[in-house]
Nucleic acid binder design. Structure first.
Lengths: 121, 121
DNA sequence: TAATACTATATGCATGTTGCAAATAGCCGA
DNA sequence: TCGGCTATTTGCAACATGCATATAGTATTA
């Protein structure tokens, strides 16, 4: 990813979309489909409070459209068809940007807590 | 604050509103008016990227209405009138809830980073 | 004196994201 | 056949934000 792209991505990053980072990380660990990701997310230690299925599916479609992940429609021997998602190279790079952003967020929170404690002695 | 109230507050908390926690902490340190808070925020190590004045003023009005802070209109010898904000007891309690929430957020981010690193060697 | 800049707050509007609810659909067990 | 689980999608209201703009008093400077 070129620098311009990274800058643009960083600007649109927000904790509101933290779900994207969570999904990218899970997909880096192994390809999954939405329903499974919801369950894996629910088991992870970094999940956001409650996982809303609609939010997961919507973010998956968006990242698919943006090329971060790639989907493939699968019709198994049983159950309804499902979309298997895999991380793309671009998605891996995006995950790195996310990780750097999260490091900065963490520092910001630490600074807040430090200031809070400093003032409460 | 009773437990029900705390629960309700925690549910509506989100990093999107982190600005509220920042403002409450600054007001705990000392009473200020909006314009000054924007400058103090800009100098703090925990500020969110850029501070939008409208967002600051709107959040101050909201927290005023909700009783977290209390405003008092001041007409100085010079310059336009301004609203001096002070933290209320309820606001102090809310700041504690925020702080606990931020601790949990920080842990979440640490868990994410740990999972990320664990998977990258 | 007029123009400009700074202090100080408020509001309108478009945009983007979310949660909840509901629709669709295949499969399986009782 | 009815309910329940797997699996995904879409509509809608609610909400928060950024940007632009309005308003207004004061101070500086050309």
């Amino acid at each position: 990813m070129d620098n311009e792209k990274v800058k643009e991505l960083e600007l649109t990053l927000s904790m509101e979309r933290f779900i994207q980072a969570e999904l990218l990380l899970l997909l880096k660990q192994k390809p999954s489909h939405g329903y499974e990701l919801i369950q894996r997310l629910d088991d992870s230690e970094f999940k956001s409070a409650e996982v809303d299925a609609a939010t997961v599916y919507r973010n998956l479609r968006r990242m698919d459209k943006e090329g971060m992940i790639k989907s493939q429609w699968e019709v198994g021997e049983s159950g309804p068809g499902r979309r298997l998602y895999k991380l793309t190279t671009q998605g891996e790079e995006y995950l790195i940007v996310w990780t750097q952003y999260i490091v900065r967020q963490k520092i910001k929170l630490e600074n807040f807590l430090e200031a809070y404690l400093r003032f409460n002695q």
